[in-house]
Design a protein around this nucleic acid. Structure first.
Lengths: 116, 116
DNA sequence: GTAACCTACAACCCCATGGTTGTAGATCAG
DNA sequence: CTGATCTACAACCATGGGGTTGTAGGTTAC
């Protein structure tokens, strides 16, 4: 489970969930503690249903967890998903460093070819 | 000016660009060096036009840079955009740590018979 | 020159997304 | 019980995203 996580379908969901300002804001809020869905909805100029859908997208991506508390549905951020996203970017980042290293090696020894 | 970058529109483009396996693969390839658009297209079972659009999305997000080289359009990854994405995730990550710190403080005060 | 190649762009399809409204089931407060 | 809240879900609409084909303009090779 090391290398090829970049082509996972869950990664699509993860980054797609982050690709919306409202959803990022919900994450920011739920990182800070539990919030009901309707409580969250009061902060945005969109309908409650729209917020419900955003929360569903976040939950599907694993960025958020819901659990019932009486008649409310409490939403709270999930740190693991964020760390997963960070790891994926780090994986790409490592490729860059590898490239830089290879460029240095080329300048140094001038012997090897690339792979395809 | 460091804090509120989470609600920028460019961030939408950045994460949206990363929310597609083909585009992440293009980034992975172009991190490793320059590739022509048609050269990239040969690796995927989709049309050249589709790849052109993916590259355009990546370019719009800043993850990739194009420049002409003869009749070819060379595509190469842009490290800065990736670092920007990493910084945004780190920003969220910091919120989590802040929360954990506060929870620790609460527990601490509670064990001392705090008055909240 | 002609042919082959690389790219750009317009037009079109299909469907997922983000938004809405409306209805209905639980749950809490009185 | 009654009313107010919170949530869920279905139906619908408009827009954009990912894909295609087709046409056209440059650039290299012959």
């Amino acid at each position: 489970m090391v290398v090829d996580q970049l082509s996972d379908a869950g990664v699509d969901r993860l980054f797609h969930a982050l690709a919306d300002a409202t959803r990022r804001d919900i994450v920011r809020r739920t990182v800070d503690g539990e919030h009901s869905v309707s409580g969250l909805a009061r902060h945005y100029p969109i309908s409650l249903t729209a917020v419900q859908k955003h929360v569903a997208v976040l939950e599907d991506a694993g960025l958020v967890v819901k659990h019932r508390h009486g008649r409310e549905q409490r939403v709270v951020g999930n740190h693991d998903a964020l760390r997963r996203a960070q790891q994926l970017l780090d994986e790409l980042d490592r490729l860059w460093h590898g490239r830089l290293d290879r460029m240095g090696t080329l300048l140094d020894e001038d012997s090897r070819g690339g792979t395809t």
